[in-house]
Design a binder for these strands. Structure first.
Lengths: 156, 156
DNA sequence: CAAAAATACATGTACATACATACATTTGCA
DNA sequence: TGCAAATGTATGTATGTACATGTATTTTTG
């Protein structure tokens, strides 16, 4: 569906303005698809993201700030996402001995199994729904990165 | 910053997989910039979005479902966003006479002034931070729309 | 025309986001 | 060494997201 139909508006000043709205809309579209796929494993996207990060460093455990630095949603409240993963027994949490301020987090066996299964489903759903070939996806990646270049972060 | 540096990961299966993460990351980047700009008016992006929609139809008031159909974040809980706009006296809310199930919402004078000011700031920030020319932005728009094409919505 | 179905909205809960603040620990420096 | 600053994490509050359920009103239909 074109953006204008989706949000019933065509009141954009130019292509750049349209791109900002299109970008946010497309991200919601994507999150919606992935969230639905993850639901069968009882995971939210954010919980999945943390499990994926821990899988990447396994068997080395990570402290909270390392997880936070690798997460896509930079301002997520990582301790509370971990709370929920601990409650589901997907991760283990303990105080670091080297630096007692740090809380280390590592996958449990159940966590490893869950992230492996979830990864498959996410890959499958991604390929089924993203209607781009590799070349187009590469162009999209390049444009997104150019877009973010040289941002002066003013207004922050 | 390239995606890999931003999230300290380069564990992508292909360009399409990378594009899905890049998309979500870029949308957070964009929301972050716009949210900061809107903060000086005490508005969140969602509240701004609703005001913008009401401005588009002004002086005709809209009912809640019409606002919901035009909003970018499709699953937002529109009645509660309206609650907060009413509390700030930016909109007025009243029962429709034609259909008593409907709640009509319209901008107050203060709401009109606020959305006009906010619109200027959003435009200015968008042009300052989005590092694409019109041609590139048009390509980005086309790719985003192709990406969403033919989605079978499976898994929903 | 009365009952059932559909519609429009409000509200409740769990989770996430954004930001401020609090607390413990470690580091740096006078 | 001792103390201030920095660091790492937890927690509190307001807002938003996702979804289920409740209530009033309108529409459909037998």
């Amino acid at each position: 569906m074109r953006l204008e139909e989706a949000i019933r508006s065509n009141n954009f000043s130019d292509e750049r303005h349209r791109a900002t709205v299109n970008l946010v809309y497309s991200a919601y579209w994507m999150k919606d698809i992935l969230s639905s796929a993850l639901k069968e494993y009882g995971l939210t996207m954010e919980q999945h993201n943390v499990l994926r990060i821990l899988k990447g460093s396994h068997p080395k455990d990570l402290c909270v700030k390392d997880i936070a630095s690798r997460i896509v949603e930079k301002s997520s409240n990582v301790p509370r996402i971990i709370d929920r993963l601990v409650a589901k027994k997907l991760v283990r949490r303990y105080q670091s001995k080297e630096d007692k301020r740090e809380t280390l987090v590592g996958l449990t066996e159940k966590g490893i199994e869950t992230i492996q299964l979830a990864r498959k489903v996410v890959d499958e759903v991604t390929h089924r729904t993203v209607n781009l070939n590799e070349k187009e996806a590469a162009t999209l990646n390049a444009l997104l990165e150019k877009m973010r270049e040289g941002a002066d972060d003013a207004g922050k």
